Amino acid sequence: MAVLVTGGAGYIGSHTVAALLEKGEEVVVLDNLQQGHREAVTGGRFYEGDLRDEEVLDRVFRENSIDAVIHFAASSLVGESMKEPGKYYHNNVYGALCLLEAMNRVGVKRIVFSSTAATYGEPDSVPIRETDRTQPTNVYGETKLAMEKMIRWYEVAHEFRFVSLRYFNAAGAHESGRIGEDHRPESHLVPIILQTALGQRSHISVFGEDYPTEDGSCVRDYIHVSDLSDAHILAVERLRRGEDSAIYNLGNGEGFSVKQVIEIARRITGRDIPAVIEARRAGDPAVLVASSDKARAELGWNPHRSNLERIIESAWAWHQSRPQGYND
């Protein structure tokens, strides 16, 4: 039986495909390549197509013996979501609806959903736990929460089983050096810092240094992308064992400040990496860190690659070898 990975040519999706293949799984990938890269898909059977295309989805399920789906495919830029809410509702929510309907037509009832800790909005406490209230502060988080709720209702109506994984910042690159992080445009802190180290940017912006944190800059969760891949596979295994649906946070439990990330990157790269302090961005909380206690206890998840040095070392190796990303 095969695992279908939607958005499998994207950053986290491609690393999960690689991890599945390493475990000997049969893998099917569906991606429209709007954000993903064909070269990032290291194996399996690839289909170029959109979730909202019923004909493509039915063909994927008809031509493969799929027993579980890992769903990554979604638009994910917070700023863009606030400017183009329609795009996010159509691609994320309607796209997920089309996927669930196609799964239901063929009787595939297991789905692992790549959600986000942005579903929580401004946290009431840190670290964030799965029982905390969900009140997103942006359209991206709102659509992800809507997708979670929709999957839950498919469980009620059609006996689906799901695992929803909520996390913040994936970072780093595969240990093989073959795949890494390449977004267009790039919005993630670690690759922006490393692009600055390569001279592709004049500086890295630090938005605010007067937050109530140890060094005044925002603190965020950073998880190695391969640790996230492991969690998705553990979630598939949970569903295959027939266990109940569940929601898990994936976090490092402590968080790293923007200034910490920059300083460690300077040490690892040996580059100056100019940083410019700018005004706070509206809506940026001081600290966003998720507790992963539940995932560790129930999934057996062990994020052993997620110290900041290892994350940046792997990312730096990728960016040095592929300074133009997959365009090289």
Rank of each mutant, 00 (worst) to 15 (best):
V219A: 05
Q320H: 03
A231N: 04
D58H: 13
E48S: 09
V17F: 02
Y248W: 12
W301H: 11
R133Q: 13
S229P: 04
G121E: 12
P136H: 10
D58P: 00
A290R: 01
E155S: 08
S65N: 15
Y94Q: 14
R110N: 12
E80K: 14
E25G: 05
L165C: 06
A2F: 07
Y120T: 09
V17W: 02
V60C: 05
D67R: 14
F256A: 07
H232M: 14
I204M: 14
S217E: 01
A295S: 14
S75L: 15
V3C: 11
Y222P: 04
G44F: 06
I204R: 04
H203S: 15
E63C: 08
S291N: 09
A295G: 12
Q35Y: 14
E298Y: 05
G10K: 02
W153D: 09
T16N: 08
E243S: 10
H174V: 02
D58Q: 13
H71C: 06
G8D: 03
T42C: 02
A102I: 09
E209V: 09
A235M: 11
P285E: 10
G107L: 06
G199D: 08
Q195W: 06
P185M: 10
Y154G: 03
A40P: 05
N307R: 12
V93N: 06
D31C: 10
V93R: 05
D328R: 12
W318Y: 14
R240P: 02
E26P: 03
E309C: 04
A173T: 00
S291K: 09
M1W: 07
E122G: 00
K294F: 12
R62I: 00
F160Y: 08
V112I: 12
G270N: 08
G86N: 14
G49D: 06
K294G: 07
H158G: 00
S202T: 07
H15K: 07
T16P: 04
G199A: 05
E39V: 05
Y11A: 03
S115W: 03
D124G: 15
I151T: 08
I192Y: 01
G177C: 11
P323Q: 12
G24W: 12
H203P: 00
I70P: 02
Y88T: 10
E254W: 03
R266T: 05
G7S: 10
I264A: 10
G325D: 10
E175H: 10
R178F: 02
N249S: 00
G13W: 01
P285K: 10
Y88H: 15
V190Q: 01
T213G: 08
S314R: 11
Q35G: 15
N104T: 03
S292Y: 04
G36H: 03
A315Y: 06
P136Y: 09
R322A: 14
M150A: 11
V126S: 08
S226P: 00
Y47E: 04
A290P: 01
I268F: 01
D53H: 07
Y47N: 07
G177F: 11
Q324H: 15
G43L: 10
T196E: 00
I273S: 07
G180H: 06
H203R: 13
S321K: 15
A40E: 05
H188P: 00
R38P: 01
F168V: 06
